[in-house]
Design a protein around this nucleic acid. Sequence first.
DNA 1: ACCCAGGGTCATA
DNA 2: TATGACCATGGG
Length: 238
Amino acid sequence: MKTGPLWCVNCERMMPDDPGHRLRPLYDRLLMAYGPQGWWPGDTAFEVMVGAILTQNTAWTNVEKAIVNLQTAGALTPAGLLALSPAELANLIRPAGYFNVKARRLHALVELVTQHGGLDALFALDTASLRAQLLDVHGVGPETADCILLYAAERPAFVIDAYTRHILGRLGLAPSSARYHELQQLFVGHLPQDVPMFNEYHALIVRHGKERCRTRPVCDGCPLCADCDWRQRRRQNA
DNA sequence: ACCCAGGGTCATA
DNA sequence: TATGACCATGGG
């Protein structure tokens, strides 16, 4: 990725060339501001996988209702979920929205688990193979695959979402045209491959987004704007 | 009434 | 490659 020098428009000084150098301080500041987020909410790896599908473009509060319905129906296991008809499953997950689409996606995901003879066998795969298998499932894209890798299989996969793109853009750390893999490499390439830290980092980014998106003026009390280091913008010529 | 959430797929140009 | 339509409920 092309990266020019970073210039703080507030304090008028140069920042390190590599935007990746800002990612550790960014994490520290988010953690300081919001504290540990305790992700992922869910008791089992399978429940996390189900939640990863259900939360696609959907508020988590709605997902919780769907999870409760599945739990009550005994459908939070591969066998239990597979025992449901598409219509029954769709009805249970109705509160999460897109219920017909997501019912099919859940069945496809369970099919992958079944093909490998269970979740333990599936998660015995190396990370690259597991990610490829997940991406083969209809309805599992890069973000959902990495959510499952990180929060269910506990692999060092950094999750990129819309909030991540927004924050990186505002801080001038990546262009809006950057692709998923490029943004992911920015994090993976400049941070230790630490699963609990990746876990917390993404959760903090989402927390920050929910906390501040559309509820307050952009820089009013924002923990990322608290000192001038965060008001940097890329410049062509210093 | 309007906007959008912890996305992904598919059809077009 | 890059947009746009579509899926659908619930809370602000």
